[in-house]
Design a protein around this nucleic acid. Structure first.
Lengths: 156, 156
DNA sequence: GGAGTCAGTTCAATACTTGAACTTATGGTG
DNA sequence: CACCATAAGTTCAAGTATTGAACTGACTCC
């Protein structure tokens, strides 16, 4: 059976690519954990949607739902390491929005206080990889296919 | 008039946060430019949706629609620099999907051939900023508000 | 002159989202 | 004790968006 190539961008968007999910993840990253905290901090989310999204995120291993009190039952939602790894996705959205959309907030390094960017990095060469050099290629297991440039030149 | 604080993540998702838009951007980044190319490469997108998304992206200055032939009229869609800057957002989604979701593709530096990661970088200090140190803070114009951690510890 | 390509549009059926109200269990106040 | 508030959701009707299938023009190629 010839499976079609699965793109990691498409796979990720299947899990978190709707209007609300990444806002929920943003606020979980910021330490919110209870249903009511999320409902109040995710701008205008209807509780039915929040409930649905939390269920899906739990099913996909992005967060864990923990009862922190039995009577009455109360729950805390916390990101797993898989969910926590979405931080840089949220960071990339924040960084773009800071520059190109309406924004009153900035992304900074808490230690030095300077604004930060989101960039590509080659851990093997221990250096930055400019976007112009980054491509999506077939994984080692299926090595026959040609390179597909992720970044081609922009127009201005 | 007291405007509520605009979060750059929310602003960005207002523009590109639906199921299809970032897949369209992905393929524009990979050099696809014509309607039919996009319809064929964005997995299963209905043409009505593609048409709508392209209109919205053009309205928001993320791409430009250029007629490259008059008779019959044919058009090319190309990212502006604003749109091109979404590359790292798509890259972050790809990087996460590569590690945590179904994926047959990997993100590599075309020059060295090694896999790349998406990380925070402080251009002032010229060093990486670990996610644990990155926060969203009020922009200079409204300096009174407290820090809000973007990344708090994950559970495992 | 018939088939094919390109760039979409149209439309009815389906799915998803929304807002408002409601539930259940408990704690605190007077 | 009665009353209000809080937390964590659920329910439901109404509205909005998405989907798939089919269709339209204006060509070009054979």
């Amino acid at each position: 059976m010839v499976r079609s190539i699965r793109c990691p961008v498409a796979s990720t968007l299947d899990l978190v690519g709707d209007r609300w999910t990444l806002l929920v993840v943003r606020d979980l990253l910021r330490g919110r954990s209870r249903f009511s905290e999320l409902r109040d901090s995710v701008e205008g989310i209807p509780p039915a949607i929040l409930s649905l999204r939390l269920k899906l995120l739990e099913e996909n291993g992005i967060l864990r739902r923990r009862q922190y009190q039995t009577n009455p039952p109360r729950f805390a939602y916390q990101l797993t390491s898989k969910g926590h790894a979405l931080g840089v996705v949220v960071g990339a959205l924040a960084s773009w929005g800071e520059k190109f959309a309406e924004s009153d907030l900035a992304l900074v390094d808490d230690e030095c206080g300077h604004g930060v960017r989101v960039v590509y990095h080659c851990p093997t060469c221990a250096r930055r990889s400019p976007g112009s050099r980054v491509r999506m290629v077939d994984s080692p297991s299926s090595p026959a296919a040609p390179f597909a440039a992720l970044h081609s030149p922009a127009i201005h």
